[in-house]
Design a protein around this nucleic acid. Sequence first.
DNA 1: GTGCAGTGTATTTTT
DNA 2: TACACTGCAC
Length: 741
Amino acid sequence: MYQFTDFEYLNTLNEEQKVAVKTLHGPVLVLSGAGTGKTRVLTTRIAHLLMTQTTKPWNIMAVTFTNKAAREMKERVSSIIGSAAEQILMGTFHSLGAKMLRQHAELVGLKKNFTIIDVDDQLKLIKQILSNHNIDEKRLPAKLFLNIINSWKDKGLTPDKISDNLTNSTNNEKQIYQEYQIKLLQSNCVDFGDLLTQPLELLRTNTDVLDQWQSKISHILIDEYQDTNTAQYLWIRLLCSKTNNICCVGDDDQSIYGWRGAEVKNILSFSKDFENAKTIRLEQNYRSTKKILEAANCLINKNNARLGKNLWTQNNGDENIEISSVYDSSEEAINIGEKIEEKIRDNKKLSEIAVLVRTISQMREIEERFISIGLPYRVVGTKFFDRLEIKDAIAYVRILCNSSDNLAFERVINTPRRGIGSTTIKKLLDISRLEDIQLFHVGENISTYENINLPTKDKINKFIKQINEWKTLKFTQEPSELIDMVLEETGYYEMWRNENSEDANTRIENLKELLISISKFDTLEGFLQHVSLMTDNETNNITGEVTLMTLHASKGLEFEIIFLPGWEEGLFPSSRSLEDSGDVGLEEERRLAYVGITRAKYEVHISYASSRRIHGLWMSSFPSRFLKELPEELSSKVVVSDYNLYDENINYDYQNQTSNPGYGPAWKRFSNNTNYKQKLFISSNSPKIKEISNDEFKKGDRVFHIKFGMGRVANANGDKLEIHFDKAGNKKIKSNFVEKK
DNA sequence: GTGCAGTGTATTTTT
DNA sequence: TACACTGCAC
Ligand SMILES: Nc1ncnc2c1ncn2[C@@H]1O[C@H](COP(=O)(O)OP(=O)(O)OP(=O)(O)O)[C@@H](O)[C@H]1O
């Protein structure tokens, strides 16, 4: 027997956490709010399972939401138990699924070296199928089918399980799905959804495989359980049904992937799904200050579909949530930049500051601002591997590793230009489809086909010959050297060099960067298997950089200071979300806001702009309804510019947006507004809107503000004034926006 | 088969 | 705005 007192890592836990960690058998659910130490429970529990010798590292399967999270968890576990942590099966559902699938690939008709394709390739494949069916894409866009197929996969539905009442049979959805799967199989490819459905099918239809895995895995641990989908749920149910040793942690209020098939009901019905489950609720938040936590609780309380919880903290801190109203997105970026510079002067670490946005498109302007003021930053989740030149290069890797990969073949055959144009490619595709052979083999036997002219055949032969030569070199050459050679010999580098532009140079640099990441792998196959699942860029943040990312990507992370720009109706909550899913969509948006706020330890800075450019048009925007849902007494309002049109208390008809006064392109109204041109001048020419007025303000002064009218200075601190307005209440305003009266 | 001009449409979030 | 797609001239 062991003694609990021996395990000093348990001292870092509170009593409830200890219960969760020490319950080593049976189903355990830790359901609790943000920052209550759920992830810490999971990490410590893994260590405890090993320290108590309850099981072996290779018998543990731990599922995280991102690969990065898996890496971090592995690091933390090994800091407790040492290098044995390496042997734990740890990763995302997708990466673990891929692992299982590679082991048993032949059972589902794949080869071990199958390629994982991305959404772009999925779409290309569907487009090909639709055009074979003469389906008019204007009427039924490929995207529609993509969404349907993906959502079926999220539910773990293979084509044979699609019953007719699930489909709109006139659109042939089921048949398209079937053909899509056949094409994938022929290319020896899988998509992301397959990494869940195929392993599930594997376990469902092969009892010996199921047996083997059930005996292998003694304990399953899952983080962020609220964002699992049906396919994932079914998979882990099968895996753990023998031992029932499953421990899930999550928070129903942080479920933000419903649009991707995540089912909150998985976490809500855990104790029904797993008999004798122990449910543990943690209530102490260790991350945020009282004010932040209360504001977040108050907001999430507006959701109806939730369990509800008590959260408290001992962390004091007197910073209110700061809500800034700005004129437009450019001023917003400037403002964030200034605030961060202030933090630098206060000796805050840049690595403890993050800007969380709703949409990726918001990032650009902020990035540009950071660049122009020389502020170091990093973007999490931008996909290096999504760039055109990287995809081209990877397509070469793909065809060298898996010659069946039709999509890679198609991408590469005329890149760079070889004089094999769309007509020829169409002929090759037709042959491939009619004779049911891979494009590459069509190419290999090109001389036997009649309807292609000789010069073209020569070009194709030459291309195939090149590929085959490189394939033999795979065994002798370093992977990165080989790809460097491929890019040189194909003339791919040259194609960009000839362009001789700034853009082309960056592309060549990116390719060099790619070679560096390839060189970290022993084989091209190894690289390829990782690259399709890799999303987070590895940049370590030791130098100290501000982090810029989407709210979705921020899940599970924490920072001292958080900026949340773009809290405007339409953007956040996103109008698309409301249109598509109504109240359900709204509640998910609100959870997203909750996630955003609860990332902060000490400070939250929210901002909203009156005007934002959408599709190149200036649109006026109203403050997000979420602002009203934050407690008044916990927030401080800052008016950054006196040209902003609304404050967050404006009466706005959320149900019927177009009925609101002034709704529509802002230029309509602004064109009649003399301030408009003046404002444009200021925002485009002056890097900082900071013409400190010479007027000294002191407590008690009467002042006038263009929007809030008359008021009296309640507090003056340099150019920062706190003013009691006669009509508009208390506001924090910079002195250059008010006049002394 | 290639290149370019003109048109239309889209931005929600990701493994 | 910005990029993907189409149609046309060479
Ligand atoms: N018992 C504890 N005592 C002190 N600090 C703790 C304790 N448990 C966790 N923490 C700290 O609290 C913070 C939040 O922990 P953790 O990330 O595990 O929470 P979480 O519940 O997973 O949060 P979220 O749901 O927001 O992702 C971390 O900084 C962690 O180090």
